[in-house]
Design a protein around this nucleic acid. Sequence first.
DNA 1: TACTCGCACTAGAGCGCGCTAGTAGAGCGC
DNA 2: GCGCTCTACTAGCGCGCTCTAGTGCGAGTA
Lengths: 342, 342
Amino acid sequence: MDAAGRQRPTMADVADRAGVSRALVSIVFRNQPGASQETRERVLRVADEIGYRPDSAARLLARGRSRTLGVMFTVHQTFHSDLIEGIYPEAERLGYDVLLSAAAEGRSEAKAVEALLGHRCEALILLGPDVVPGYLDELRQRAVTVSVGHRVPRARVDFVHSAEAKGVRQAMDYLVELGHRAIVHIDGGRGPGSAERRRSYRAAMRRHGLEPEIRVIPGEHTEQSGIETGQLLLAERDRGLPLPTAVLAGNDRCAMGVWMALARGGVDVPRDISVVGYDDSHLSHLMPIGLTTVRQDAVLMAEYAVRFAVERLENPELEPREAVLDPKLVVRGTSGPPPGAA
Amino acid sequence: MDAAGRQRPTMADVADRAGVSRALVSIVFRNQPGASQETRERVLRVADEIGYRPDSAARLLARGRSRTLGVMFTVHQTFHSDLIEGIYPEAERLGYDVLLSAAAEGRSEAKAVEALLGHRCEALILLGPDVVPGYLDELRQRAVTVSVGHRVPRARVDFVHSAEAKGVRQAMDYLVELGHRAIVHIDGGRGPGSAERRRSYRAAMRRHGLEPEIRVIPGEHTEQSGIETGQLLLAERDRGLPLPTAVLAGNDRCAMGVWMALARGGVDVPRDISVVGYDDSHLSHLMPIGLTTVRQDAVLMAEYAVRFAVERLENPELEPREAVLDPKLVVRGTSGPPPGAA
DNA sequence: TACTCGCACTAGAGCGCGCTAGTAGAGCGC
DNA sequence: GCGCTCTACTAGCGCGCTCTAGTGCGAGTA
């Protein structure tokens, strides 16, 4: 009695068995007026008995609208998991379905997006997309598009991101306050938010009169990148160069990598060097001493993303919007005064 | 010129514009014999011009078969990300589409599965499902089902998992060889593979004459659980009880948590205590000193899962099968001889 | 010439639903 | 009796595609 080979019951089966028309079953399942309470109950009972459940492909085809949001994310990006967790309940609340498609090694973002479009998603929610200029605008022609994390200057789509500059500024002010001067920044390459974070780092350094100390090390939003940077710093130390006293990483994963490499190299965090991350993904609570980081509220970002998508679906005339959420520095164990400070 | 409100072109539009019948366009897009090379090119060119792409909902409805595999995973489970990464290419190779549905806090596995079924997935690939007995059998009636990681004794579905007992045995033999005697195990509760790992731990302890030292600490497959266990051990030490010399964690995430809590508590790994994980998820390379762990080959497991699903779809008569992959101990930096050993 | 065969192509039914336009019947006022 | 409204229900088209059963035609065969 395996499912393979057997066909699933349809609305017609339910209708026959309950002695009503197909249309009535449809009414009951859409929870629309036009059926008596008694009939509703009977239909639902029969449906349950024969294991009927609506076929969303057919439903979607007939309805013309799919009421489905497609979410593109990248595997292994922990912050994306946090976002996904927030997207489901909000979508459900608004009566939308969610389809996930992952980008990964060997599976490009474009491919992941095509899959979503092929499944007739009405809107795309792109988590931290690594888009080439123009691609977002191209997508916009094909579906409502919301970009989370990555703000692309001219693209006329909705954005949800945090006020990167503010977050970085908070972190920098905090470090300088503690007495740090040699603060390096590992940037996130083309990753979401990187450009703003980099700019804001530079601005903060200049504002604090630390222009000569500015140093941006190219990187990515991965542990690997953090580890490499950590190793680079260790190698420099071994050649007699001074370690910086603080590292502002591109995100939490990168910060974690730096921290690991440094710990392995016998450098004590935060005594010898402070490490600050970005995201406050759930990783940050998990480090032995807790990661000092800039908190982005994943749930709130997810809610904005879903609402932007749904509102635009219901009113296509809307001007492109932008939700800029205020991030907040969270001080934990990886930061402290620089070595040699009082 | 936003997508919202506009409707996408259909096969009929392509047919009109190319001056052929709808059926012919269908033939071209399915890459089936019955159209001349010349016509194929013209149809494809026209389709490209007007931005047509097949609607998989309609296609799926008409075809009767969806050729879609549904994958249920749990957010934040890093090993699941590894598996997903392996599932896509194999599915694509066999001509199947993949739909993802996540379980998360507030979104049960059952709910995630219902979503997949509603989207007409022909087969379900459940990653490390936390199933109640009987649920798998119920699912089997509704779709081809493959369970990855979690072996449920009587359920007549396909399983892919690693030879948990072997993996644990390797790890235990290795630790005992190094001279460890007080080896505790943090189990994974109802998590995939936990029961076998626990059993095998006990068996190994008995086999090595360490029965009095057996200690299983209840836990979960999360960092949090590892941290709590680490704190528990530290608290015991502070009360004057001896620390174990080795910890065999339920999985890598848990091992990472233990390691973090211990490091925070000033316990040196591996000098004071050895920590061994399970999975070899990409986390394990990332720890400062590298995690000693039992490697499960995610890509191979993913390939088996996809093949099992597809083969059963194409031949429903198949007896339930089981792929048991041999895990392999990977020794990295978190393990060594117990304190006081030569 | 009459026929078969293969190729390129088409007509049209049907997949499982949603939805519009309709009907049948009960209840009401006049 | 009539027309009216309201509720409970039904008939049947159409969503965009696949697929079976064709048609028309030129080349090959007897």
